[in-house]
Amino acid sequence: MLRLPGFRVASPTTIAEAVAALAEPGARPIAGGTDLLPNLKHRLGAPTVLVQLSRLPLRDVEVRAGALCIGAGAVLADLAEHPLVRAHAPSLARAAGLVAGPTLRNLGTLGGNLHLDTRCRYVNQTPLWREALGGCLKSHGDRCHVVPGGQTCVAALSSDCAPALVALDATLTLHGPAGARTVALADYYCADGTAHTGRAAGELATEIRVPLAPGPRRETYVKWTVRKSIDFPLISIAMRFDLADDAVAAPIVAARVVVGALASTPKLVRKLDALRGQRLDDPATADAIAAQVGAQCKPLPNLPYDADYRRAVLPVHVRRGIAALVAAGENHG
């Protein structure tokens, strides 16, 4: 079978211990392990020490200071069913419940999902396979098989929770040797598939904060894959609409649409200001959003599925997501 490379493990029980352990060169944090371990079995990375985060007190979910605060170690299956998450961030609950399959959701954590390595059909295979390919920007090579001539790796952000949390204006707190810092998740990801998060070496993500909605809101997360379970997202769309009152047909006050599974960052869809005052149940609204998504989001042949097809149906899934919100009516979930 595929074997893991050799490494040591550290099992800190406090954040300070974890930060100290992560200071060692070649150290990597491991939370649920559902992304890191397959990648290491594929020899994508050779850490000297894995710092296990499972013993850290990072699993709490609470409402504090106007925000839903979620420990980075909270398990995805729990988040999907957590009453506070369902009440205050239903699109996140939905996204967490759509990650991989049921058994992996029992291991995977929110912090881990936000730090999933980017994925590409030309990378996530064995060393033999990558050797046959001749390597690439992300793995022992200097060429990109997705964008001919490309100099920047465009491996895809494959987190289901990241688009949802960016759409909800979430922040991420990290602890490092220099103390704690908090960043807007929207600013956390960068367009380099080989190093796509702002996590500095030695840093540890500890908490995700979602500001409570200032008023009535509808939000959803849409995922499409070939199978109804197990697969990474091929279409990934988070949408949030703040409304003037609590009817689904109320005028839109603010809209935020974030698309994942494109390149290395979640894509914030621009030019949605004209939606202010429009209504979700007006088909023209969905058409306008779908048109902007279609114009601004171009799925690439980085994921193992037909890119032209993904481009063609992305707007369809936007419209369907909105239609489902309208159909749910006053039922916020």
Binding site: R121, Q125, W129, A132, L133, R227, K228, F232
Partner: peptide, 16 residues
């Protein structure tokens, strides 16, 4: 390079 395009049970999708 003549690689098998879907050489795992993640890429070669068996219906669940």
């Amino acid at each position: 390079g003549g690689v098998v395009a879907a050489p795992s049970l993640l890429d070669y999708r068996l219906p669940t």
